[in-house]
Design a protein around this nucleic acid. Structure first.
Lengths: 203, 203
DNA sequence: TTGCCTACTAAACAATGTTTAGTAACTTTG
DNA sequence: CAAAGTTACTAAACATTGTTTAGTAGGCAA
């Protein structure tokens, strides 16, 4: 069965080659510059070959989205080491915003792009995202348990904080902050983050 | 010069006819269902004719975006009548979120779509949006002036509240709330809005 | 060695944005 | 009013991009 094994390995390698090309093109040319022909050209195969390894463009897209979710998780990992739940929550939030501002393309792909959620495919990515989200909610729960808040509505607290962070990053990523001079934007984001922390203290 | 006037009027009517068709198609079939040929078919002209009235698809798109901005402004108008700045601010926020949840397509077009901001065209829409935004910031300023907050950093307060509302609507519009059962989502949004109001009280 | 099967591709198809070249009706001019 | 010019419109084509089809060449099995 060695031949079959080799073939399977080669198949996996080819999928990985395609995805890696897609990854590079996405990083260089963004969402709009990513098309099947450009991937094919980069790996020096015909466009039709791509379809032997991925059902359609969306499947490649989902795979990329998974990479974004993994990158986000990796970015947030350092927060997990912090003992104190309140400090952990703050650092988690800070890293979340930091990820969005440093990797707007990835954030866009995860949260602002139309295509991905339409069909409930892309299970792995959703699962990974949910794990990260659960870690966040658990940290809020730990804060609630330790009486860091007066409120005990973990769900609403978590959701409210998420809304703020997500809104902050989204306005950045989609360039809806034109009313503020470019050099002020990051500072405003930092101030706003500090403000929501202060506000949360009074919860 | 009557003929020239008539021609100008006819030109404006045609532009309006095209835009109205685009509007209907957008409402029925959404962003992806809106294309030049479908507009042409609806108004019973050839696709090429569209290009005699709009430079390209983006220009139609920008015009639609302006409609969305106008719809948003109209939706928020009732808040302006409220005397007390704090109550006005709350109502403004409530109506903002309400608009987003009731007209996800419009909100999407205004804040979540990639195309519009790329070139700094679409001046009128931006101007209209800025006017609405200024009204919001002025209301926050009025609250600051009336000592509703301990903080006096109007800009950061306004931005923080906007981040929350925008994040809340965005997560809805782009369906990133799958972890909550559908029937819980609106309630969670309402609770979160109430929570941010409470949090703002302590600012 | 023969026949099958796999990986791959050229070419085509379909959808959609956009341009070109031409036509018919309307308007101006002499 | 007739000739010339202009305008409004269109059919057809072109370009791009996702996707499918019909094959082909080379490895693999019998």
């Amino acid at each position: 069965m060695s031949i079959a094994e080799r073939k399977e390995r080669e198949k996996a390698e080819m999928r990985s080659l395609i995805l890696s090309a897609a990854h590079h093109i996405f990083k260089e040319k963004g969402y709009d510059g990513l098309n099947i022909r450009s991937i094919a050209e980069r790996i020096e195969y015909s466009p039709a070959t791509i379809y032997l390894y991925y059902k359609d463009k969306n499947e490649i897209f989902y795979a990329l989205q998974y990479e974004a979710a993994a990158a986000k998780r990796d970015h947030l990992i350092p927060a997990a080491a912090i003992e104190d739940p309140w400090q952990r929550l703050i650092e988690f939030g800070r890293l979340y915003v930091d990820f969005g501002l440093k990797h707007p393309d990835w954030y866009d792909l995860l949260f602002l792009t139309r295509a991905p959620m339409e069909h409930v495919e892309n299970q792995e990515c959703w699962t990974l995202g949910m794990a990260t989200h659960s870690f966040f909610v658990e940290t809020v729960q730990a804060c609630v348990d330790a009486r860091y808040f007066k409120s005990t509505d973990t769900q609403t607290i978590a959701y409210t904080l998420w809304c703020h962070a997500h809104g902050l990053v989204s306005l950045f990523v989609r360039e809806r902050m034109r009313m503020y001079p470019p050099e002020q934007r990051e500072e405003l984001a930092r101030k706003s983050f500090a403000m929501i922390v202060k506000m949360a203290e009074g919860l």
